[in-house]
Amino acid sequence: MKKKGFVDLFFVFLLLYLFLPILATMFYAFATNWNKTVLPEGLTFKWIATLFQDSRFIEAFGRSVLLSGGAVLLALLFIVPAIFVIVLYFPKYEKWIQAAVVMVYAFPGVILAVGLIRAYAHIGVPMIAAVLGAYVISILPYIYQGTRNSLRNVNARQLLDAAELSGASKAQAFSKVLLPAVYPGLFAGALLSFSVLFGEFVLINLVVGSRFETVQIYLMKKLSTSGHIASSVVFVYLVLMGILTFIISMLTKRSKGAQKV
């Protein structure tokens, strides 16, 4: 009993540690003045209103959604099918994907930024396209993990064989049996990828800079000018990410429900 309490302590600590900074930042967005006192002197909607009147912020938000969403979409279109085909039909080459995953991890944004600048900055390639491509590659670990885990969990190979033995065509076995089974894992991977990219700052800042102002770059600029506006940005960002997470989890649940019928 005593041991359980000890373990619970870590769980409570984890939750507190994760939420305290978020709550404080969100609170700060509504504080009139919070420099001398432990609690804010008053509450106001002034900062949030100011933020939404700033068209630069709205545009930055649009750019972030476009860039991150575009990269995830490209990954789902081009990387996921490749992982499926390799895992299911060329398993001996799977170690190459794993090597690629490890390499992508080993070479984070700051290294890739140097490479992209050296390779493409002086030959007229739009650098935003280079960043988009690098984004698609940088989420490979999350996409691979999501795809691979779900394939392993459902015993994909046996599942496909069983479906084909029962008279399904290859395409049917794939779309009616395998895809619904791995869909939640895939979606989780896509969601994680999107959230990682949405918070990405290194590549976009070092390679493209202020010419393509995303939410992160906008926030970085506000950090030194207005703490209240900065926390409003973080507030809006977190609320929208929360809504997004909720919608996606609903979609995932619905797809699971449909599968049971």
């Binding site: 978020i22 404080a24 994680l192 992160q216 926390s231 960002y237």
Partner: peptide, 14 residues
């Protein structure tokens, strides 16, 4: 997962 979005610049600010 939601808190894992909370990294980089927003996290530093928090």
């Amino acid at each position: 997962n939601l808190t894992s979005n909370f990294s980089g610049i927003p996290l530093a600010f928090a």
